[in-house]
Computed example of a mutant assay.
Amino acid sequence: MELLWSNKVLAAKDISKIIKEYIGWEKNTTYTVIKRLIDKGAVKREDPGFMCKAAISKRTVQAIETKVLLNKLYNGSLSTFLNEYLKNQDLSKAEIMELQRIIGEQRF
């Protein structure tokens, strides 16, 4: 998905070559993953040339994965996550002020 988000459209054969170089997957493995992503609606296939493009934005995937993580590890509680995470961090004054600004901008 990172390849498609950064390149917009790539031929499956090019994706396969890049993945082979960086991860070591064979062409069939890469094509299987692409097919699964198409079946899940995350990737669109365009012909001719088996051109692939992302059908879902990175931001959307991040939001979904964040929600899954919060549900799995913190029973869906953002405040519990933030409390646990932040108490183990050494935040600068600037970082604390930025977090306060972000929270202050939230609509109630």
Rank of each mutant, 00 (worst) to 15 (best):
M1T: 12
M1Y: 06
E2Y: 14
L3P: 02
L4W: 04
S6W: 03
V9T: 04
D14Q: 14
K17C: 03
I18S: 03
K20Y: 03
E21I: 07
Y22K: 10
I23A: 15
I23S: 03
G24E: 04
G24H: 06
W25C: 06
E26R: 09
T30V: 14
T32F: 06
V33R: 12
I34R: 00
I34K: 00
I34C: 15
L37S: 06
D39L: 08
D39K: 06
K40Q: 11
K40C: 10
G41F: 05
G41S: 13
V43G: 02
V43A: 03
R45I: 04
E46Y: 11
E46I: 10
D47Y: 06
G49Y: 08
F50S: 15
A54R: 02
A54N: 05
S57A: 09
V61Y: 00
Q62Y: 12
Q62S: 12
I64Y: 00
T66Y: 00
K67R: 14
K67S: 04
V68Y: 00
V68G: 02
L70M: 08
L70Y: 00
N71W: 00
K72D: 00
K72M: 00
L73D: 10
L73C: 12
Y74N: 02
G76L: 00
G76H: 00
G76K: 02
S77I: 11
F81T: 07
L86I: 08
L86E: 09
K87D: 08
N88T: 14
Q89F: 05
Q89W: 01
D90K: 12
L91M: 09
K93E: 15
K93D: 13
A94P: 03
E95C: 10
I96K: 11
E98W: 08
L99Y: 12
I103F: 06
E105D: 15
E105Y: 05
E105R: 10
Q106D: 13
